[in-house]
């Protein structure tokens, strides 16, 4: 798993590549929480993500709750395949804002 972080005016983008599991989800957690704690909304790019397990999902939920408590947002973009199936299975696709493309983002 690798990730890339980009700052934008109103949000930060965290693009995940590969597979997120118990082995590397602590890295994702640190990145996500750091972004939210620095006062930015976050967009998590799933376009190149091929797998995510419950530890990765729990990390997203934690960051989502923290963002919400700070009047910020956490949005997921480009989820397909196995990661989208996990989101649907857990019904988190109805909790998190999910968009198909970054073109849908303003700012």
């Amino acid at each position: 798993m690798t990730f890339e972080q980009k700052k934008h005016l109103h949000y930060q983008l965290l693009a995940l590549t590969g597979e997120v599991d118990l082995h590397n989800s602590p890295q994702v957690r640190k990145q996500l929480l750091d972004i939210v704690e620095s006062g930015y909304s976050v967009i998590v790019d799933f376009s190149a993500l091929s797998y995510i397990d419950s530890s990765g999902i729990a990390t997203l939920v934690e960051a989502y709750n923290l963002a919400k408590n700070n009047q910020l947002s956490l949005t997921i973009v480009g989820a397909t395949g196995a990661p989208l199936q996990v989101m649907e299975l857990t019904h988190l696709n109805k909790v998190f804002p999910m968009i198909d493309s970054l073109d849908e983002i303003k700012g």
Partner: peptide
């Protein structure tokens, strides 16, 4: 509650 921590892995096992 999905937004509370813990138990998600077991829940997925039973669902699948």
């Amino acid at each position: 509650n999905i937004l509370e921590p813990g138990g998600l892995g077991l829940q997925l096992i039973y669902q699948v």
